[in-house]
Simulated scan of single mutants.
Amino acid sequence: MTEEHNDDGTTRRSFIATGTAATAAVALTAAGVGWAGSSLAEGQTLPLTPQCTDGDDTPPVIEGPYFRRNSPLRTNLRTAGVTGVLLSLTGFVYDLRCKPLANVLVDFWQADQRGAYDNSTTAYRGRGHQFTDANGAYTLETIIPNEYPGRTPHIHVKVQAPRGPVLTTQLYFPDNTKAYNVNFAAANRRDAYYIRDTVIPLGPLTANRYQGKFDFVVRTA
């Protein structure tokens, strides 16, 4: 596969390779709080991660066994054969001083509507990377992944500012998410890697689609 280059000539491969050892030194935080029409049940509250404040960060989550290098450059993971409950995810990437960061690598991978990863084909189904725009924004069109034995539904992601360390983490879903007859509350409780700090705040389910927002905070050196 042809290796993509960002504007300063750095390849995606060098982005990932240079920061692997520094995974624990990076951080993220969820955002999008106070949405009108939240999907939370009446009287239920979701503990919020800290909004971006100078020097504020939260721990990463393990990579897991299914990461594959050289995913396609794309913002839409809903390729042929991928169906399910839709998710439109947006957000920004900030540095520790809350400055939006342009040209940041954001690499996603996830299970499909059956709870399966595409590990054996060249289609890279459920996988893709992109770079933040001039305002530090990213956008992802995908589906809510299904659970599989031992794991609650989640989305994997690596985030890396140009020549910075790599943040490897996993994004989770609120307890009252509705998809595939999964009891998200029970699945979240059972998952040893689940942390509420990386839950995506979701709007209401409308026409089989959730809108979510998640902002990342990463180190740049």
Rank of each mutant, 00 (worst) to 15 (best):
F173W: 07
V217N: 07
R163W: 14
R78M: 06
T139M: 05
V106Y: 07
E141N: 15
I16N: 14
L140G: 05
A41L: 14
R12E: 13
V218S: 04
T220D: 01
V218D: 04
I16Q: 13
I143K: 00
T20L: 15
A25V: 07
A221M: 03
I143Y: 04
F108L: 00
L28W: 15
A185C: 08
T90F: 09
P59A: 03
H154W: 10
L86V: 10
D107I: 04
E63V: 13
L46V: 00
V93Y: 02
P174D: 00
N208L: 00
V106F: 08
E3K: 12
Y138S: 07
L202N: 00
D54W: 05
D133P: 15
V33G: 08
I155Y: 02
G64K: 01
N146W: 11
R13E: 12
D8F: 08
T20S: 14
P174K: 04
T49S: 15
A179K: 08
K158N: 14
V218F: 00
D7L: 13
T90H: 12
E3S: 14
P59S: 01
Y210T: 00
L77K: 01
Q110Y: 06
F173K: 00
R209D: 10
V159W: 02
L87W: 03
L105N: 12
P174W: 00
A187R: 09
P145L: 08
A22I: 04
G128V: 15
L171N: 07
N188K: 11
R74Y: 05
Y172M: 06
G126N: 08
C52R: 12
N183G: 05
T198M: 06
T152R: 13
T198C: 01
V93E: 03
E42L: 14
V26F: 02
P65A: 12
R190C: 06
V159G: 05
H129S: 13
S88T: 09
T53P: 08
D7H: 11
T168D: 13
I200Q: 02
D54G: 01
V182K: 09
G115H: 11
A80H: 07
R78W: 02
Q44F: 04
F216D: 13
Q113I: 03
Y180N: 04
A161C: 01
V217D: 02
E42T: 14
N146K: 09
T206N: 13
T83F: 11
S14M: 03
P72G: 13
S71A: 15
T29D: 09
N76F: 04
C98D: 08
R74A: 06
L87H: 07
N188H: 08
R68T: 11
N181T: 12
L73Q: 00
G203F: 12
G126W: 01
G115D: 08
G84Q: 06
V159Q: 00
V82K: 05
S120T: 15
R68W: 04
Q170S: 08
L167Q: 07
Q160V: 02
R74Q: 03
T220A: 02
V104N: 04
R127D: 02
A22Q: 03
V82T: 04
P59G: 01
R74G: 00
